[in-house]
Amino acid sequence: MGFFSKFRKKSPWILHYNTGGCNGCDIEILSALAPRYDIERFGMLNRGNPKQADILLVTGPVTKNCKDVLRRLYLEMAEPKVVVAMGACAHGGGIFRDFYHVENGVNNIIPVDVWIPGCAPRVEALIDGMVEAIEIWQQKSKEKEYLRDHENIIKTLGVEDDD
């Protein structure tokens, strides 16, 4: 918690990734950027680049193809970072639950900090979730964060001594 941490809440940059949802949530995100809600008022930008983003906004049930991409996006983001899962299908599958091609939600792949309920959530709910995410983000430190079952992954890959 240094001098600069105070300014975090003023400029959260968002990385938005759709992991195979119906696109409803993505339309809501776009409408949050548009004149009516204009989340750039709060300094939020949709960066589309994991290296420069602070908040990973995930929608969709995580299809098997998207799994590795999602994990990679998460690992490429520089700490401190927060993950926000938006919409019912990001919380365990929603209407896609137990389909043959999905992983049943974001939490099975990467650790989620904030959940935004709804299918599709309203833009107000999205902004509310972002405010919540910023509060969590301010508590985080610059330490490296790992995936959920980090030890197991390291063991299966056989790279214990590789930092």
Binding site: R8, P35, E40
Partner: peptide, 25 residues
Amino acid sequence: MQKRVGPPLLQPFYDFFKLMDKRPL
């Protein structure tokens, strides 16, 4: 010009300070 309100005037400096606080990669 896009009929939005837009960020505050000091926004670039907030971004600057925020980026100082990220883990260097």
